[in-house]
């Protein structure tokens, strides 16, 4: 089988799984909204305070929502034996992982990106910054899923893997968080944002190359455990 039909098959399978158990896709979205709703309650409902922290709050909530969803990235495939089939199949494993992660990012991360301007509105973020917020999420979100796939692959076979996954992956998210919130801040101050977005794009390009190889290697290691 060529790589394109293979990618089509993986996309179709992931799509069907997501449609038939929508909770897996919707729970991170509900989590995302709920976490953000806690900040005005906990800090202050004053619009000027909220506008100042909005970019960071949305991004931290997005990181946590992604982390929460990562545990199920390979878990079910492993429990049902799909992972073993992929490991022994003749297809290049990094490619399979790449397609799987990107589809997963689209299914889980997509709703978060679509929701973010609404949340920006609720946090009194100036409307002029929505474009930057969405652009930063579009560039940063796949990076989060790609980096996270390495952590998910490393912890898939372990009991109590969930907390360990957070410990492994969260430090690696720091650069994405820094550049993305810097972009939103710059947009709020009316400064150019292209440099920050370019750095996010560079991180994405790097991770597109590195992460699938590392995650595939990690899946091979954890399958021996």
């Amino acid at each position: 089988m060529g790589l394109v039909p293979l990618a089509g098959l993986i996309c179709r399978r992931e799509w069907l799984l997501a449609v038939r158990s929508p909770a897996q896709v919707l729970n991170p979205l509900v989590f995302f909204v709920l976490v953000i709703a806690m900040f005005p309650l906990g800090i202050s409902p004053a619009p000027e305070v909220l506008a100042r922290i909005a970019g960071g709050v949305i991004w931290v909530a997005a990181l946590l929502a992604v982390l929460l969803s990562l545990e199920s990235l390979f878990r079910e495939d492993r429990d049902e034996g799909v992972l073993e089939q992929l490991l022994v199949s003749p297809h290049p494993l990094p490619f399979v992982v790449l397609v799987k992660v990107l589809v997963y990012a689209l299914l889980v991360g997509g709703p978060l990106v679509l929701m973010s301007p609404v949340l920006g509105l609720m946090l009194s973020l100036p409307p002029a910054t929505y474009g930057t917020l969405v652009a930063a999420l579009l560039l940063g979100m796949p990076t989060l899923f790609l980096l996270g796939s390495v952590g998910a692959a490393l912890t898939v076979g372990l009991r109590r893997g969930g907390l360990l996954l957070v410990l492994l992956v969260l430090p690696l998210y720091v650069p994405v968080l820094v550049f993305a919130t810097a972009a939103v801040d710059a947009a709020q101050l009316g400064m150019p944002v292209r440099g920050h977005l370019a750095l996010l794009g560079a991180l994405l390009a790097l991770m597109l190359v590195v992460a699938p190889v590392a995650a595939a290697g990690a899946l091979r290691v954890t399958s021996e455990e």
């Binding site: 390495v150 690696l172 650069p175 455990e225």
Partner: peptide, 16 residues
């Protein structure tokens, strides 16, 4: 497996 998993994590982390 522990050694190889740690090695992969260390290599990914070296990006930082």
């Amino acid at each position: 497996a522990a050694g190889r998993a740690s090695a992969i994590l260390a290599l990914v982390g070296v990006v930082n």
